[in-house]
């Protein structure tokens, strides 16, 4: 990681320079795009961070953990990551708000935080993606697509827990 990212950046800039591109002005253009993206997700982040925080403060997650405890013990996981697995396929901003909340309540290097990090890094907002791509074409019958996509997500969540256990605990 410490090696990979700087190498990636150095290689990219050098390659562009060799290709006679105006590297720095391209970079600045990209930053402008990034700023636009940031501003466009700001309202939903603000709303969802508040929502997740309110659920937390109301004791909802504690209640949920209490009732999910037997199930979680069965699979040897913590209940903190269950809401993450549910919210992740629906909303990117929502899952990031939740991730931030898990970091704050259990510590950034806890088992739950690492699992949630891997979950959010390894999967996509499945339902949103399906809606965008099938919305662009006239297709209304998606056949086996939904079931395959959701199964792949579930598979990825299970692997996230297993790999974190394998590499960190």
């Amino acid at each position: 990681m410490n090696f990979f990212v700087p190498l990636f950046i150095a290689f990219t800039v050098l390659y562009a320079l060799i290709k006679k591109e105006n590297v720095f002005s391209l970079f600045c253009d990209g930053v402008k795009d990034g700023l636009k993206t940031t501003i466009s997700i700001f309202p939903s982040i603000l709303g969802l961070v508040t929502g997740v925080g309110m659920l937390k403060a109301s004791g909802f997650f504690d209640l949920l953990s209490k009732y999910l405890l037997p199930v979680c013990n069965l699979f040897d996981i913590t209940a903190d990551i269950i809401p993450m697995a549910i919210l992740r396929p629906f909303s990117g901003s929502g899952s990031f708000s939740l991730l931030n909340n898990i970091f704050e309540s259990t510590g950034v290097n806890s088992f739950a935080s690492l699992c949630a990090s891997v979950m959010s890094g390894a999967t996509e907002t499945t339902f949103y993606t399906l809606a965008v791509y099938y919305g662009a074409t006239g297709v209304t019958k998606t056949r086996h697509n939904l079931i395959c996509s959701v199964s792949a997500d579930v598979f990825s969540f299970i692997l996230a827990v297993l790999t974190v256990k394998l590499f960190y605990f």
């Binding site: 990219t12 800039v13 562009a16 290709k19 591109e21 391209l26 253009d29 990209g30 930053v31 993206t37």
Partner: peptide, 10 residues
């Protein structure tokens, strides 16, 4: 976004 813009255009 800046780095990726460079990758895209180069």
């Amino acid at each position: 976004s800046g780095i990726l813009k460079i990758m895209e255009k180069s």
